[in-house]
């Protein structure tokens, strides 16, 4: 999207040793502040091994408007599996992801409510693709246990993190992590934190920690 008002940066962080490649994306939805701020911070991380590609402000027009949707609608519904993404911006993002050939893709989001509590919201969830396999499930379970043991207060029962699958295996949701899994066979995780009864600093801290833990479990350790 070079030269347009949708031009956004792509940053690469390389570890001192060879290792896996990960992509972290923030700002798919412009009103989910924690996602793009954590991704922006990740551009300054130092790694011991591997390679991290960061797209911090994926949907820059929506971010400027502080709205979920950009000019083409909901960006995270424009990535149909096995087909071309449905907007120029989605195609540009997909081009970057595909060219990077990642082992893991982490997409950062935020919900208004809580999964399994509020009927319409899916906050405090680590979302996986349906064909994730045991490694992805083990990784997700480890990270969720880590967060619930070390960060979420015991009495904040409704805020405990949980894992969810993108349901309806036959249905194409158009979500990036589903396309990542189906089209290039990489692991896809979507972190959906919540703004419900949480201050922004806590949202940022928790989103950062989950991202670090997911990378760590995939062989990319943050050193600073």
């Amino acid at each position: 999207m070079e030269g347009t008002n949708r031009e956004t940066g792509v940053y690469e962080v390389n570890g001192s040793k060879e290792g896996p490649t990960a992509v972290v994306i923030g700002g798919m939805h412009g009103n989910e502040v924690n996602g793009y701020r954590v991704a922006a911070n990740a551009t300054n991380w130092e790694l011991d091994a591997g390679r991290l590609l960061v797209i911090p402000l994926a949907n820059i027009v929506a971010i400027e408007r502080n709205s979920r949707r950009g000019p083409d609608g909901d960006l995270n519904r424009l990535f149909p599996s096995g087909q071309k993404p449905e907007s120029a911006l989605a195609r540009a993002i997909w081009g970057v992801v595909k060219d990077t050939d990642p082992d893991v893709v982490i997409d950062l989001h935020r919900s208004r409510g809580l999964f399994n509590t509020h009927r319409r919201w899916i906050g405090q969830v680590l979302l996986l693709t349906e064909a994730h396999g045991e490694r992805a499930i083990d990784t997700a379970e480890y990270v969720i246990d880590y967060m619930n043991e070390n960060h979420v207060p015991r009495t904040m029962r409704f805020h405990r993190f949980t894992m969810a699958d993108i349901h309806d295996t036959d249905r194409d949701t158009g979500m990036l992590i589903q396309k990542v899994q189906r089209d290039i066979g990489a692991l896809g995780f979507l972190i959906e934190s919540t703004e419900f009864l949480l201050d922004l600093e806590t949202q940022l801290r928790w989103t950062t920690t989950i991202t670090e833990q997911l990378l760590d479990q995939n062989g990319i350790q943050r050193t600073a």
Binding site: T155, M156, F158, L197, D199, E201, T202
Partner: peptide, 15 residues
């Protein structure tokens, strides 16, 4: 709600 690190068991009934 102002700072989630201050969440204590005392907040449980209101929560």
């Amino acid at each position: 709600d102002i700072d989630s690190r201050l969440f204590s068991p005392l907040a449980l009934p209101g929560y």
